[in-house]
Amino acid sequence: MRLAFMGTPDFAVPALYALRDAGHEIAAVYTQPPRPAGRGKALRLSPVHHAAETLGILVRCPEKLRNNQEELDWFAAQKFDVAIVAAYGLILPKAMLDAPERGCLNIHASLLPRWRGASPIQSAILAGDTESGVTIMQMDVGLDTGDMLSSVGVPITAVTTATSLHDELAALGAKMVVDVLRECPQAIPQPEEGVTYAARLTKEDGRIDWTQPAETIDRQVRALTPWPGAFTTLDDVTLKIGAVEIEAKRSSTPGTVLDDRLTVACGEDTALRICRIQRPGRGMMDAEAFLRGQPMTVGTRLGS
């Protein structure tokens, strides 16, 4: 098939390669424009942009699609059989959705209709879901409301992180979209019940509230690492928390350091041990190494 591919982050890259390897003609790749990044603010290509250039595929980076008639005309003139969309980052106007013969298909990282929206992977872990997955959806003008062509689930365990789930779903979505293009399954409307929305994350979502139970904080750390990152404060210094382990129940004021292993009291008489931690200007490190450079006495209060 002659297709357009529309994606931006790492999540979309496996699908781009899978479609190429399956023999499809990827006539154009749409991705977000290069953005300033790093201390030098040099322009950085998106992961999809870099992959497309490696494959020698034409790349288009419009700043916007709405009210961009020149881009819409170009897209329509290509006579694509289908467009594949994976975390592109721009809303597609109806004219673009309707232009390819088979429309636009979206690789969405949840079991729709649960977790429509911007952060389905993190939201599933935060909520304590026991299952996530990928849905291949026929796109319409709504927010992830289109009919479903394929849906496959994967378990979320007590050690699942946003990184591990992201990588698993990216690989799964790549395989599924190739299968959908080959098999042409019948589209099924999404159920009307069970709809939830995954809001766009902010850095403040990573702030740890030590009055929450240890289980809730553990999910927060696993869901929000590496971005926006779970964090706490100590004397106005921000400390990022990269990994924790739930400990036996302990009764103390939430946020209090309980021992020399960096066990911290949480809400509802629970506790967790900080396993990975990062001070400003340093890399993430094991708690043992952190404490050698910055001892933390029993009774220290975090988050105050």
Rank of each mutant, 00 (worst) to 15 (best):
A162Q: 11
A162M: 08
T163Q: 14
S164K: 02
D167E: 08
E168I: 03
E168V: 02
A171T: 11
A171F: 02
A171G: 08
A171H: 06
L172F: 07
G173E: 03
K175M: 08
K175V: 05
V177G: 03
D179N: 05
R182M: 13
P185H: 13
Q186W: 03
I188D: 06
I188Y: 04
E192N: 04
E193D: 07
G194A: 01
T196S: 15
T196L: 15
T196N: 14
Y197R: 02
Y197L: 07
A198D: 05
A199L: 09
L201F: 10
T202K: 08
K203C: 14
K203V: 15
E204S: 14
E204W: 13
E204I: 11
D205L: 07
R207A: 10
R207I: 13
I208R: 01
D209G: 12
W210M: 04
T211Q: 03
E215D: 14
E215Q: 09
D218L: 05
Q220C: 07
V221Q: 13
V221A: 07
T225P: 00
T225S: 00
T225R: 01
T225Y: 00
W227R: 14
P228N: 03
P228F: 06
G229N: 05
T232Y: 12
T232S: 13
T232W: 13
L234R: 08
D235Y: 00
D235R: 00
V237D: 04
I241D: 07
G242A: 11
A243Y: 01
E247Y: 04
R250P: 00
R250F: 09
S252F: 04
S252N: 12
T256Y: 03
L258G: 13
T263A: 10
C266T: 08
E268Y: 03
D269V: 01
T270V: 09
I274A: 08
C275A: 11
C275T: 14
C275W: 04
Q278W: 02
G281P: 00
R282D: 14
G283V: 05
G283W: 02
G283N: 10
M285D: 03
M285K: 05
D286A: 13
D286M: 11
L291A: 13
R292D: 05
Q294T: 04
Q294N: 11
P295T: 06
